[in-house]
Each structure stands twice: as C-alpha cells, then as structure tokens.
C-alpha cells in the first residue's frame, strides 16, 4: 500500500488542463490583439501591472470580494451536480432589499446593518428556491428556470428604482441614499467590512466541503446522484438547502455592494461589472472544488482590474479579459477528461 496525498493528487490531475487553458487563452487573445493592430505584449504588461502593482492592490481586493462571492454562488451547486444560472437575478434581489430595508427601519446603526443584510440574504435565497422548486416538484430543468428568473428580477428592480423608489433629488435611475450609520464600516481605501465577511464565507465553504458529513454528501451527489439517493441522501432537501445557500450568498454580495460601496441601489450598478458571469466561469474552471474556485475567482478578479489598467494605458478595451476568460472555460470544457459515471 503506497502512501499518498489524495488532495494533492487530485489537484495534480486537474491543474495542467486549467493552466494550459489559461495560457492558451492568452495566446488566442494575443492573436486577436495582433489582428486588431495592438501589441499583445504591451497590453498584457499593462494588464499585469494594472492588477498587481502596489497602488492597485486594494482595488483588486475590493473587486475580488463580489467575484469570489459570485464564484461561490456557482461553485456550491456545481459541486452537487446542479447549475444555478440565476446568480445575477439573486444578486439584484439581495441588493434591492438591502437598499430598501434601512430606509424603513425605525433605528439605525449596527442592528440595522445586520437586519438589512439578513433580509437581503433571505430574500435572494428564497428567490433561488423558486428554481429548486421547479426542478423538484415540476421537473423543470433548473438551468433553464434559474436563468429565465433573472429577467423578471432585473426588470422589476429596474422599474422600482426608476419610478416608485426613485431618488427624486437626482436625475439618475437610483434609489435614495442610505443613512450614514447604516453603511458598512470602511477598512483601508475602498475596502470595507464586506471583504473579511466574504473571506469567512469562503473559508466556511472550504471547511464544509472537506470536513463535514454534509460536504461528503454534497460531493457524492455531484459525482453520482443515483448512488447518493440509494445511500439515503435526501436529494430534494439537499437541493433546497444548496440553492438557498447559493442564492443567499448572492444576496449577501448584493447587500455588501449596496451597503458598503454604492450606498443605494443603482440601476444596472450590480450587473454592469459582470460579477455573476465571471464568478460562474471561475467556478467552472475549478469544477466547483472549493479552494480552486476561490483561487480562480481571485485570478479572474485580478484579470479584470488589470483590464481596467490595460484599457487606460493601451486603449485595448477591458472586455478583452472577459473574452480570455470565456476562451479558458471553453478550452477546459473541450479538453478536461470527461466523467464517465453517468454513462
């Protein structure tokens, strides 16, 4: 019997494809840049310095909070063999609730912050449960229903902040400002308390997946759902739990942005930076594996911040980073060894 390190070994098998895919995406991106008359080396140098140079580091970390959060939103269901494509809608629901609740509470301060965030988490979690309900009791594939549910959430939120909830003192489609006492305390520069909260959530997921019975059940359901059911795991209950947590984290992200950065709900403010799709791609890159997902989330966040620097220095649009990420995921999907346990 040989002595082995299973976690290491598993990471080993996964790493090369992920790394090669990232490298290859940069090569493809380089070709795109060349063909559009840009120098890829200049652009990539600007990308790296934009992400990692010391003055930009707090920005990167601040950007990483929602990206890692949305990565977890996708990674947890993915680990259990489910797809939550409704992260954006859940994010908006959470942000909207967090923007409304403080305005209506009779008190301000710490308690108001906690209540607002809890309300955001619960509202977004419940919204995510709709998709789970559809799959479990009506047989509607969750990947379709969760995706379609984005549109009503986004549309209604947009309507609300343009009309009934509009801040009449401004011309922009946004809700009224949240009182000073109800905002998340700032730490350093753009960083606020939300960042450590998100770190705690990520660590909790890492611990849960590796060290608990629930985590074991989550993984086994993801590998072979029929086996899990046969072994006595209550798949429906698990799916409800997973979707509530997943949606809840999206709601948490929304509330942190609203209470910590925007201080109000700005129409399209939560969606424009593409946290949801970025997080989803990071989770796919790591196959939902907790540490890998967090690492991928950080990496993609760094890329996007770097993209801002690149756009400033070289006039290459920062949306290029989105293209690189999508190419990475595509290559992973094409070349990662397939699972065969479901025929």
């Amino acid at each position: 019997m040989s002595f082995t390190f299973p976690h290491l070994r598993r990471a080993h098998r996964r790493l090369p494809t992920a790394l090669w895919s990232i490298l290859a995406s940069f090569v493809v991106g380089g070709l795109v840049l060349l063909s559009t008359g840009n120098n890829p080396l200049t652009a990539y140098r600007a990308l790296v310095s934009g992400a990692l140079s010391l003055p930009n580091l707090p920005d990167t970390l601040n950007w990483a909070m929602p990206v890692v959060g949305m990565t977890l939103v996708a990674a947890i269901p993915l680990r259990a063999g489910m797809l939550n494509l409704g992260g954006d809608g859940q994010l908006v629901v959470g942000g909207l609730v967090a923007a409304i609740v403080p305005l209506h509470l009779p008190f301000t301060g710490f308690a108001a912050i906690i209540i607002s965030m809890a309300a955001a988490i619960i509202a977004a979690g419940l919204y995510a449960l709709l998709a789970a309900w559809g799959e479990i009791s009506r047989g509607i594939p969750m990947l379709i229903s969760s995706l379609l549910l984005n549109y009503p959430a986004v549309g209604v939120a947009s309507y609300l902040v343009r009309f009934p909830l509009r801040d009449t003192t401004s011309n922009l489609p946004q809700s009224a400002m949240i009182p000073l006492d109800d905002r998340l305390p700032a730490l350093v520069g753009p960083l606020n308390v939300g960042a450590p909260v998100m770190i705690a959530v990520a660590l909790a997921y890492v611990w849960f997946e590796r060290r608990t019975v629930g985590g074991l059940e989550l993984r086994l359901s993801g590998i072979n759902a029929r086996f899990a059911r046969y072994g006595g795991i209550h798949l429906a209950r698990q799916a409800y739990g997973v979707m509530f947590v997943s949606g809840g984290i999206a709601g948490l992200v929304g509330s942190i942005i609203v209470l910590g950065s925007h201080f109000r709900f700005i129409d399209d403010g939560l969606l424009a930076p593409s946290f949801g799709p970025t997080g989803f791609m990071a989770a796919l890159l790591a196959g939902g594996q907790p540490l890998g997902s967090v690492a991928a989330g950080l990496f993609f966040a760094a890329m996007q911040i770097g993209g801002v620097g690149m756009q400033r220095d070289t006039e290459v649009p920062r949306v290029l980073t989105m293209v690189l990420q999508a190419i990475t995921i595509l290559l992973i999907a094409l070349f990662r060894r397939q699972r065969t346990d479901r025929e």
């Binding site: 019975v213 059940e217 590998i223 072979n224 086996f227 046969y230 346990d341 479901r342």
Partner: peptide
C-alpha cells in the same frame, strides 16, 4: 456501477455512504 457506487469517489467514501451520519463517524 451506476447505482451501487460513485466511480470518481474514493473507496472510503463509497464504503461509508449510508453510515456517514452514524455517531462513530461524525
């Protein structure tokens, strides 16, 4: 293969399913 085991899971994970919530394991 499709009901009795999970192929990509380890032998220990396959051998524990159904017992995982017993007092002796958690």
């Amino acid at each position: 293969a499709t009901v009795g085991t999970a192929g990509r899971a380890s032998a220990s994970e396959n051998l524990i399913l159904g017992f995982q919530r017993r007092r002796e394991f958690q």
